[in-house]
Design a protein around this nucleic acid. Structure first.
Lengths: 137, 137
DNA sequence: CTTGACCTTCACACTGATGTCAAAGTCTAG
DNA sequence: CTAGACTTTGACATCAGTGTGAAGGTCAAG
């Protein structure tokens, strides 16, 4: 598919799709040697990128994480220098802190909404499952 | 305490502390009517702010969340307009998405590190507990 | 071949979060 | 009182993530 369709499917502007490519997050092929071409895997990849970016993960780290998933998907051996492993371990604790902080705020917000008279009205339908004390997934 | 000490305690630059004040996230008193004065609660508040901001929560939303916690701490009644409740509910799903995405990336990164020959070396000590499949808290 | 829809690159611009620097006021120790 | 450390405001700079628009190339339908 071309960039316009990918944009429609993911809700990400074409501008941003080109930006992500510039940052090395996606690497579409070129058909006519001028038009970018994407496949279904790119759709998933883009969705994950926007998720990470909106969660405050800088594009540099996002790239590393995506590369990691690619490596695993390819069944390649996990090997890297001690230095890199150390850096990734630090990123892991960074992720943990982010998750912990978000979870705390989520709980606060969630509890507040439940004590609100509009709770049922506002949290009906798709939002309802999100009310459990633990975050989904 | 004055801004310098708060900066030292929290690791947040004085510049950023003033910025957070400008954004309505902290409201220090003024002693000599020129110097900002902070108390211990501000330390906790600042730490929470940096956590939220680093997790991709915009300062505007962070302010809402902190106000919510203040309200709860004051034992005030939970009441707001339907509109506001609706908006907060949307923010809740936004938080859920952020948490889900971070959790997924965390798992990927974590699994990768465990398959690395440097796993034990790099994840020893304080980092070890973070290796469980579920994020902390 | 022309038209319209879509694509390309390039560039300017804005917001949010930060850093840095300058000019000037305040406070405390000596 | 003076020197040094700290503070204040304000301006300019940077980076990431975006929007927007210009100028022009590609392609498919009529």
């Amino acid at each position: 598919m071309k960039i316009g369709e990918l944009s429609r499917r993911t809700g990400v502007s074409t501008r941003l799709l080109r930006y992500y490519e510039e940052q090395g997050l996606i690497s579409p092929a070129r058909t006519t040697n001028t038009y970018r071409t994407y496949d279904d895997r790119d759709v998933a990849r883009v969705e994950q990128v926007v998720g990470l970016v909106r969660a405050g993960v800088p594009t540099r780290l996002a790239r590393v994480l995506l590369d990691l998933e690619d490596t695993r998907a390819d069944g390649l051996a996990a090997s890297c220098t001690r230095q890199v492993a150390q850096m990734l371990a630090e990123e892991l604790t960074g992720l943990d802190e982010r998750i912990a902080c978000l979870t705390r705020s989520r709980r606060t917000l969630c509890e507040y909404l439940q004590r609100t008279e509009h709770a049922t009205a506002v949290l009906e339908g798709a939002h309802a499952p999100a009310l459990s004390s633990a975050p989904p997934h």
